[in-house]
Simulated scan of single mutants.
Amino acid sequence: MTGLLLKDILNLKSNFKTLIPITIFYICLLKFLGDEGLYRGIAAFMFANEAIASFSYDYMAKWDKYALSLPIKRADLVKSKYILAIMYILLGCIFSFFMDVILGYFDGTPNILQKLLTAYVFLIFVSIMISIRIPILYKFGMRKSTIASLFVIAFPIVLEFVMKKLGVNPLSDNIQLLILALSPLILALIIFISCLVSCNIYNSKEV
């Protein structure tokens, strides 16, 4: 399992040279445009997308065919992708939190506890999105899953827009506290079910 994770981390390592400055640019741009919701979560989305990019590297290198010739369980290949995704989402949320704190000192909103809670909300939200995307990737592959993945990516943006039109603040204290109370068990269940589904798809798939 460790070797599988190291393989993906090394493949994605060079992307950090562009990922960090691009993420900082979008955070600052969205902050300037006044999008309070998206600027705090964009880092989590972008970092999570890096974990998804590991599927592209595997596809181009025909990694699955090689890996299955080794004494590696299919379930371990799947689980390593989930662990990688969670690691990158955590990194994205931590990065987003520190950027939010830094920008907060410039605009006079240095409420660290509130920003920490917001980062946690995005951790939950992006983790759920990834739990939906990974089974789709295993089912349809990188090319065929593109359209479905775009719908998953667009969903939070559309949801935020609809909630604002309805006069509901998606980052209100009440909503965040509700997510905080319900999230740990629900998130663990969602990831567990998603991993089971992905394992079943991959086990029945001919590579």
Rank of each mutant, 00 (worst) to 15 (best):
L68Y: 12
I52W: 03
L84P: 05
K73I: 06
N11H: 14
A85D: 03
L103P: 04
F140R: 06
R74D: 04
I112E: 11
F122K: 01
A61V: 09
K7I: 07
Y105P: 02
F25C: 15
M99F: 01
A154V: 06
E160G: 13
A61L: 12
S172T: 02
L117F: 10
L19N: 03
Y202L: 11
A181C: 08
V78Q: 03
L30F: 12
I112T: 14
A148L: 11
F155V: 06
I157W: 13
K165H: 15
L187V: 15
Q176W: 09
Y39W: 13
A85S: 15
R74I: 04
F140N: 02
V101A: 01
Y88R: 11
K144L: 13
I42A: 05
Y57S: 05
M46G: 06
D64G: 01
F122I: 06
C195H: 12
I72N: 01
E36G: 13
I175D: 02
K164F: 08
Y66T: 05
G3N: 13
I191T: 10
K115E: 13
D64S: 08
I102K: 03
K7E: 06
R133V: 13
I128H: 00
P71F: 05
P110T: 00
Y39Q: 15
S183I: 12
C195A: 12
F98W: 06
Y88A: 06
L182D: 07
S194A: 07
L117Q: 14
T146Q: 08
D107S: 05
V121R: 06
F125Y: 14
K139C: 00
S149H: 07
V78I: 08
T109P: 01
G41C: 05
G104T: 01
D100F: 03
Y66V: 14
A148S: 05
I86A: 12
A67R: 04
F97Y: 12
Y39F: 13
L187K: 11
K65L: 14
L5H: 06
M163A: 09
V121L: 08
C93M: 07
V101P: 00
A154F: 15
L117K: 08
I72T: 09
S14E: 03
I147L: 09
I130D: 00
P156N: 05
I190Q: 04
I147P: 02
I147W: 08
N111R: 12
K144N: 11
S131N: 08
K13Y: 12
N174V: 11
T109L: 02
Y202F: 15
T118H: 12
L29N: 03
G108P: 06
L10G: 01
L12A: 02
A181K: 15
L103F: 14
L116N: 02
S194P: 04
N200W: 15
K17N: 13
I72P: 10
P21I: 06
I157G: 05
C199P: 01
V207T: 10
N11I: 14
